[in-house]
Design a protein around this nucleic acid. Sequence first.
DNA 1: ACCGCGATG
Length: 771
Amino acid sequence: MAKKRKNESGGANVIRIGNKTISLEGYLTKKPKKDESKNEGQLTLPTTDFRPEAGDLSSVKETVTSVDNTPPTSRKPTGDPQYFQARQALPLWSRQDDIRRILRQNDVLVLVGETGSGKSTQVPQFIIGEKWCQKKKVKVGQEEVNVGGVVAITQPRRVAATTLAHRVSREAGTPLNRLGPHSKGLVGYSVRFDHRVPPGTKIKYVTEGMLLQELLRDPHLRQYSAIIVDEIHERSVDVDLLSGFLKQIILSDKAGRGGIPLKVIIMSATANVGSIKHFFSGADSAVSDGTANPEATPMTSVEFLQIEGRQFPVEIIHTPKPVPDIQEALMKTLFKIHTEESLSDKHGKKDILAFLTGQEEIEAAQKLIEEYATTLPPKVPKIKVFPLYGQLSMEAQHEAFQPIKGSSTRKIVLATNIAETSVTVPGVRFVVDCGKAKVKQYRARLGMESLLAKPISKSSAIQRAGRAGREGPGKCFRLYTEETYETLQKTDLPEILRTDILSAILTMKARGINDVLAFPLMDPPEFEAVEKALLHLHILGAIADDGSITEVGRKMVMFPVTPPYARVLLAAADPKYDCLLEVIEIISCITAGDDIFLQIQSEETRDNIEEFRKELRRREGDLLTYLTTMQLYTAENADRVQWCKERRINTRNMKQALNIRKQLRELCVKQGMMEQPPQDPQPFYPASPEQAANILKCFLRGFAIKTALLAPDSSYVTPQGKHVVAIHPASVLHGQKKEAIMFLEHVYTQKNYAKKVSAIESLWIVEAMGG
DNA sequence: ACCGCGATG
């Protein structure tokens, strides 16, 4: 049994697990000073870490009895001494022996640790010295190859991969930013547009997409001894695919790795990992990659470890009865908090964060609050409201994070989901949760997506509540009843069940998965979604009649864009159309992020901005307008930032578009699809009507199924499903009548909207379908 | 007359 006790001789604090004694000195003496005052909700000693009740620690109990040969000296940190204290104070530090032992005995470890436990920075450093983690020379067939030696850690976002790599490289004593061009380093990273992998790298931070890309070249991931999958709870499509490929490698006979196993560490911030554990155990599903022997379906033992995080307690208050009017309930709750709760305490300011569904709701609420606030008696503290949603400019978003000037004013932040995971608003001690969020869902049958407000999941509700307990004890007011809470889904639907899986299926096909229905996935999409994707890939020419990937399909996966865009690029390289440079401009601009044209906020600037935007507009529609914008932007040599400002164009996305353009151009040159393009800036020549037609015909090769014809009643109707679509108000073609239209996006919100719309001729559709 | 949020190769 695991026991904890304090050393009474007055010296170092120790805990005793079985016959082993672990010093807790690091925790007690190296704790940051500011933590000493925080007694509520934070234990000076993370006692819960050592209690079997804290989680399923059956594996740890085993440790207790097994012999651990780790010499005590190995628990001293390696690397730069200036980081020793901070590293030893991390909740994870005392568990490193457990982690090492589990990985010696098992191929898979599921590690749950909340943000701040140190898992993303420490786990790789704990294991790179292990014997199984060293590079080995082995025979694969006739060939002598190296297997292992490197640990990869995947991240959903680029910024996380690069910042973690910088942090860990400093801890390891080989800082990335101080390495010369040829000097060695222990730590590296590889993300799109940015690679820093010094010779000698043993720890490599990568984005999930990057590792999937490596899988194309090296299906056995031979350079790696271990893959650490971080933030798996976010359940991106890429992490789901990656998990499938990793499972296949784990359960295979490892012949492609010379018999050397690949260790997998799955890391999650939420404890809800039952299905993930089950998935990797391989208990229920045989792997059908055509090589595994079905009679000897291997089983893998999956160990589990939980590290407690740090969080202040949050009191949850539900409404006693269902609220008929969210707006009214929100107002009542906000002013109840404001008038009854103190403005600050010893932990700091006590501000309010309210989760609403969208921009419209936020703007309406802001107006109401500001009106009502003027009626408050003078002795009541002032209120300042900050909206926070993604479409806001960076400066406006930034305002919501700044502490308010003057101590007699309370901040109320009205946010969308952006505040749930992407950003942290400091100073928040009260959360108001409306219980809903807008969710995007792809409907395979209709070939379109919807964006509607839906009830959130329990996991999401807990996450929202947690935002009140970051800096001190907090309260969360839910504008729904406890009964309603109980009816919520446990978790959100993973992205793979909410999105078009066209890319995912082609990704599988290109990596040797012919029977995509048998590919192991934690949450397999419905058959209809798979069927739809296969059919679509067939229309695009990416797969043959028998479902095998074609030459066209293999070319398509080379491009970092979805299959329809890749098909457009291939068409544009055809001498018949010869408009690859122009098509690259448009695709770069579209795939760089949100619409580059920002919304015009105030009426008084509207006319002015419209005047500037007029020269960008093309009567052919949005795609040619994007082309003109990119061409004029790159021709602009004086002040691009000012140029964007005058037109209210998103500068960040324009810069990203230039990155993508560079990458696509390089790929096309490498593929022999075009000559080296001339350098910027190039003089601007507007595309002729003939060129415009060619460009649109190329797009039709990728988007022939996204067209609509003008009906006698002036509505647009899709030829296949006979669905009525309306041109979105943000399109330059909004309100116009054209014989036929092509649209790249198709979203149901208030109506069935076509976005990124172009005017075409109906004959072109037949042409594009025909071949 | 519209507008959840992120991201990736």
